[in-house]
Amino acid sequence: MKFNWKQFGIALCLFLAGYLTFNSKLFAQTLEKPKVSIAVGGKNLLYYLPLTVAEQLGYFKDEGLQVEISDFAGGAKALQALIGGSADVVSGAFEHTISMQAKNQIITAFVLQGRAPQIVMAVSNKTMPHYKTIADLKGKKIGVTAPGSSTSMMSNFVLAKGGLKPTDVSYIGVGASAGALSALRSGQIDAIANLDPLITMLQQKNEIRIISDTRTLKETNAIFGGPMPAATLYASADFIKKYPNTTQALTNAMVRALRWLQKAAPEDIVKAVPESYLLGDRPLYIAAFTKVREAISPDGKFPEGGAVTALHTLESFDPTLADKKIDLSTTYTNAFVDKADQKYK
């Protein structure tokens, strides 16, 4: 009997099609919530570069996820989306997990994107050419991405170290791109707390004078007195408990992005991000990335003592935290990252 290769080929294709369909369905069933909405405040910022890499390189899709990312003017707005129920997860600052627990809402960060805040506070050379000390900021207008965001928290901390209270200045939300540039250049604000690539652009054009810089680990430790966790993915404790496999898939994608970033050349970064992120100046973007590269977490893990540093930082300018019992063990977890590290050794 002659072997029919044609029939065998057809049978094999049908088998593989059925096998793959079965496994894709099985895979989808393991994800309790394959469609996930993520809110972020200033997606174009290098602060959130790991999120962009995970999206642009298809890492979320590889995990079986359909991720929809909504961009807001600042982290506080992204947090509001989570609290309001229009977002499942936030790509935002770790400090929010502490500030929300003080309001009796348990939010847990499950993967770390940045091990330094990358936030820079600077004064305008146009409106404050004779700036000398923090005290000179009293009564001035400070531009932040959004009131209540990590940029305003950073500003509050810098002010506190200089003897000023948050109420001694006026905070104005200016976003993280064109709005911030316009506000500074038109003289609407006297100082700014923002991130790269915006800050590097203002530096190169000599439009600002930096008074506090957290783009490097050394300067971050010097300013805060210890490791300071920055950008994270966080969600309500209820979401993580209800959707552990989905949370794991999100973590897997982010850890994979973080590992890619450790090896990627600056030119690779430029190719991976949307053209609009480059502000029309590729060398500028590369220069900015070089300045913040070490601030990006290499593995997604929260450092020991980081939560304590963040709490002490918030307490320095927020007296309402003094009588609050904050359980730092619920503000973050490394459990999902530990599993992701096993997958992407």
Rank of each mutant, 00 (worst) to 15 (best):
Q113P: 00
L233H: 14
K343Q: 12
T290G: 05
T220L: 00
I134R: 05
W5Y: 13
K25A: 10
G92W: 01
F110M: 08
A160Y: 00
T145L: 12
R259G: 02
G114Y: 00
S149N: 08
K161N: 07
G300W: 02
T330G: 00
S99Y: 05
R115L: 04
A178H: 11
A39F: 06
P227R: 01
I106E: 15
Q113V: 00
D341V: 03
I326N: 01
T331K: 00
V89R: 08
N23P: 02
D281H: 11
L20W: 13
I172Y: 09
T145N: 13
Q188Y: 02
E63F: 05
T151M: 09
S86R: 15
I199K: 07
P266I: 04
F27E: 14
T133V: 06
F94V: 04
Q118P: 00
S236L: 07
T30N: 13
A135S: 08
Q101P: 01
S316A: 14
F94A: 03
D168L: 03
M100L: 14
K161R: 11
G163F: 01
T97K: 01
R185Y: 10
T167R: 06
G74E: 04
V255H: 13
E32G: 14
L284R: 08
S182T: 12
A78H: 11
Q188H: 06
R282Y: 03
S37V: 15
N23R: 12
A146S: 14
L250A: 02
I296A: 07
L46F: 10
Q118I: 05
E294P: 04
K241C: 06
Q101V: 03
P283D: 10
D318C: 04
P266Y: 06
T21M: 12
M228F: 08
I286P: 05
R209E: 13
T247W: 10
N194Q: 14
A178L: 12
M154I: 06
A288L: 09
I189S: 09
Q204L: 11
G42W: 02
K218G: 01
V111K: 09
Y344G: 05
E63A: 11
